[in-house]
């Protein structure tokens, strides 16, 4: 067992340092780059925190849809090939839900402030009740 503090805590501290200490003391270009670096670290932190549960859930869905287990890259490659061949499509049981869940899990790590993600999360995220729960964008 490794010691404390945890990687995600250290990463958060470095991101905060870049944002609140380095950026204000830098010229505009370097300040911009420091903020980009802070955002990148935050992304890495979110992945460390969220990936174990999200990956396990994805693996479970893939196993159900494809009918067998395996490593995630191999299963995704197989799923991609079966969609490309027309063997699986959005009408296939579980596929649309799987793609929504997987895509939303990616956005939760990559870009949780992406406006279309917020809309999609309300419609297709955990707790969304399908069509009845659909919010309109207008």
């Amino acid at each position: 067992m490794q010691d404390q503090p945890f990687p995600s805590e250290i990463i958060a501290a470095v991101a905060e340092f870049l944002r609140t200490t380095v950026a204000p003391k830098s010229d505009p270009l370097l300040a911009f780059q420091a903020k980009v670096a802070a955002n990148a670290l935050e992304m890495a932190r979110r992945q460390l925190e969220q990936a174990p549960a999200a990956d396990a859930a994805e693996l479970e869905r893939l196993t159900r849809i494809l009918g067998h287990g395996g490593d995630p890259h191999a299963l995704n490659t197989e799923l991609a090939a079966r969609i490309a061949s027309g063997d699986l499509d959005l009408a296939s049981p579980g596929l649309a839900d799987h793609l929504w869940a997987t895509t939303l899990a990616k956005l939760a790590v990559d870009q949780p402030t992406y406006a279309a993600y917020r809309v999609a999360l309300a419609e297709h995220g955990p707790g969304a009740g399908g069509a009845n729960n659909k919010i309109t964008e207008e």
Partner: peptide, 18 residues
Amino acid sequence: VIARRTSENELDLMRLLA
């Protein structure tokens, strides 16, 4: 960071097609 914006397009495609 731009490489990791690919998922934004996956989301947009899901909204367009699914």
